[in-house]
Design a protein around this nucleic acid. Structure first.
Lengths: 218, 218
DNA sequence: GAAAAAATATGATCTTGATCATGTTTGTCG
DNA sequence: CGACAAACATGATCAAGATCATATTTTTTC
């Protein structure tokens, strides 16, 4: 799992902690809602957050999932607009909340903070761009595979990774139904590209899955 | 059409022009290819650029289209990585190319440039996030509608907007086949939400189309 | 302005993923 | 531990979009 320290040097982290306040959210709690004024910048200290859009028929799409050390929702905070989506804690989650004005001040006064913010936005742009490609063209197996690889990368270092999400969550990230996602995961398991243990997805080595995804971009 | 001046004050624009050099690309010319070292930051002075990913079966996905005044490909230039996609001129296009080092220098020395870059990345993140939602859930008619609205916004101010793209291009942005896109456009025309004149899409008032899209997010 | 090329259009068929129904396993809680 | 709930699983049917084929319109080029 990434830590806050990856954001930059000790002093920067200290400064973030200095100006922000920590807040804990229970599983399922709403961190902010689409349409709210973007008053604070959230940084995940522990736990997991999903950013979603509700559709008119009640279903939801998961735009992204954030965890240890990740800063999210920078754009609306930067220019003081409304959050364009809703953020929900997927488990008990501790956030560092930096108020908009303090964040802006940090950006203005420190070139390092601007640099961090830009790096982070760059990462996010890369991720979202990859999602677009995935959603626009891939088959269910590939879509699910890509989502799983992306999730695995966010989990801790080496060894088998257990994906801590339900099929429904994966489905909402892949733009598929839960049933189709279940079948896609099963087919990937049949191909020995991942394991299913007690219903949960285990990725032993990301490499074989990546190979599969590389060769099947059709 | 947006102009370079919208980027900020006159001096900033002047500085961009000062450090960059202009280069012209013919229709179909490659501006950079996926995998190239990101050596320069492109700004569209005139014309139109598509950023695409080639799939293994030869087809392509259009990730985004850029025109008058738009800066693109910031992430790879920022951290000196490779371009993650290919950029092609869709018509005769003039670009302002700012070399990586010069851009970095501008960012370091001027808080205003950092601010511009962050604003631009914010815009892009908003756009890509909207694309994800569109691709993950919408019907062909909605997908096409959303793509058209997005394209229309980039065209000049008021009055009817003529979308200067082929059905195939729209299809590659919407993650659909050309045939499905043709049929979706036709159905939207039947519903009086747009016009088709000599095969080209004309959007009279974006409002009615937006209303339709708002109410049909299913 | 005619011929060629490119883009749009439309019908028929086939395939894939959504939907609906139901069963099974896993996890939770008194 | 047993009962309930939640998540996973799987089969059957349906519908929407891809694919294939071909025609028409528009644009380009000489």
């Amino acid at each position: 799992m990434r830590s806050l320290d990856e954001l930059g040097s000790e002093e920067l982290v200290a400064k973030f902690r200095e100006v922000g306040r920590t807040k804990t959210f229970q599983t399922g709690a709403e961190i902010f809602a689409e349409g709210d004024e973007a008053m604070f910048l959230p940084i995940v200290l522990s736990g997991k957050v999903k950013v979603i859009k509700y559709l008119t028929d009640g279903k939801e799409v998961i735009i992204n999932i954030f965890q240890g050390g990740e800063i999210f929702a920078i754009p609306p905070v930067l220019d003081g607009k409304k959050y364009p989506a809703t953020a929900i804690a997927m488990e008990n989650t501790q956030l560092l909340l930096v108020y908009r004005n303090d964040f802006i001040k940090l950006l203005k006064n420190s070139e390092e903070f601007s640099s961090i913010a830009m790096k982070r936005m760059s990462e996010l742009l890369r991720e979202t761009t990859a999602s677009i490609e995935n959603l626009a063209t891939a088959s269910p197996e590939e879509r699910v595979g890509n989502v799983l690889v992306r999730l695995a990368k966010k989990e801790s270092g080496s060894g088998p990774v257990k994906i801590p999400l339900r099929r429904q969550d994966i489905a909402e990230m892949a733009g598929l139904t839960t049933e189709t996602t279940i079948r896609a995961v099963r087919r990937l398991a049949d191909k020995k590209l991942l394991k299913i243990v007690r219903g949960k997805v285990i990725i032993d080595e990301t490499k074989s899955l990546l190979d599969f995804l590389d060769h099947h971009s059709h």
